[in-house]
Simulated scan of single mutants.
Amino acid sequence: MFTPGEFDRWAENYDSEVERGQGLPFEGYAGVLERVFQRAGVRPGLSVLDLGCGTGNLTARFVQAGCRVWGSDFSAEMLKIARRKVPGARFFQHQLGNPLPADVPQHYARMVSAYVFHHFDQAGKIALLTHLRNHLEPGGWIVIGDIAFPNAEARQQAKQAAADAWDEEPYWLVEDDLPALRAAGFQAAFEPVSFCAGVFLIQPEMA
C-alpha cells in the first residue's frame, strides 16, 4: 500500500506520466477517464464525489459539465495541484475508508474514482464500497476506472511482459471480483478499455 508521502513526491510528475498512456499501468488512461465520465450519466447540478482525485484530471470533466463536485485525496501535494487546475471543485484531504469530514456533504448522486481501488485487496474493495454506499443518494451509483484484468491468466501475461516495470498490487480480476461484488449486494458490470484497464459500474441492490 502506498503512503501519502510517496504520492506527495509523485505529484509534480504525475500528469506527465499518466498522459503518455502507454504500457502498464496507464495504457488507455484518457479513455478510461472519459468512459467513467460517460457512464456516470451526468447532468448540470448533479452532486459528484471524486474519490482519490489526485491532480484533478477526472474531477475537471465533471466541473466542466456543470456538476457540483467534491474531490478527496490523501496527498496534500496532489491536492495543491488539483486546486490550481480545477478551481471550480471543492477539495479536501481524506483517507479512503475513514468517515467523511463533517463539513462536506454526506450524500452524493455519483461517486467516481480512477486508478485508486487497485491498492486494496478484494476484501478491502468490498469493505470500502459497502461503507461508501451509505453515502449515496437514493438511485445513485459508483463508477470506477482502474487497472483490471479479465482473469488470473491475463494478469500473469501482463506481469511477464512488464518484467521489472511490474508493481505487485492487488489488481482487479474481473472473473473473481464481479461475483464478489454481487454477493455483497451490488449490481456490478465491467467494460474493458485497454488490455490492463477498464470501468466498473456499481450500484447497490434495491431492497
Rank of each mutant, 00 (worst) to 15 (best):
G66I: 13
C67G: 12
C67S: 14
W70P: 01
W70T: 05
G71M: 11
G71T: 14
S72C: 15
S75D: 13
E77T: 07
M78R: 02
M78F: 15
M78P: 03
L79F: 07
K80Q: 15
A82I: 08
R84D: 14
K85I: 13
V86E: 05
V86Y: 04
P87G: 11
G88E: 04
G88Q: 03
A89I: 06
A89V: 10
A89G: 08
A89Q: 01
A89P: 08
A89Y: 10
R90G: 01
F91I: 09
F91Y: 13
F91K: 10
F91W: 06
F92L: 12
F92W: 11
F92E: 09
Q93A: 14
H94D: 07
H94V: 12
H94P: 04
Q95A: 14
L96R: 02
L96D: 00
G97Y: 07
G97E: 06
N98W: 02
P99E: 04
P101T: 10
A102W: 05
V104M: 08
H107G: 03
Y108A: 02
Y108V: 02
R110M: 09
R110P: 03
M111F: 04
M111V: 13
S113A: 15
Y115Q: 01
H119R: 01
H119M: 04
Q122I: 05
A123W: 03
G124K: 02
K125P: 01
K125I: 10
A127D: 13
A127M: 07
L128R: 06
L129M: 15
L129S: 08
T130Y: 07
H131K: 14
H131R: 15
H131W: 12
L132W: 15
L132V: 13
L132N: 05
H135C: 12
L136C: 08
L136H: 09
E137K: 14
P138M: 11
P138N: 09
W141R: 12
V143Q: 09
V143A: 08
I144Y: 01
G145H: 09
G145M: 07
I147P: 00
A148L: 06
P150N: 08
P150A: 05
N151I: 09
E153Y: 01
E153K: 03
Q156V: 08
Q157S: 03
Q157W: 00
Q157Y: 00
A158C: 04
A158M: 14
K159W: 02
Q160L: 13
Q160A: 14
A161H: 11
A161Y: 02
A162D: 02
A163C: 01
A163I: 00
D164Q: 14
D164Y: 01
D164H: 11
A165L: 04
A165W: 00
A165S: 06
W166Q: 05
W166Y: 04
W166T: 00
Y171H: 12
W172Q: 03
W172G: 02
V174F: 05
E175P: 00
D176W: 03
D176I: 00
D177R: 02
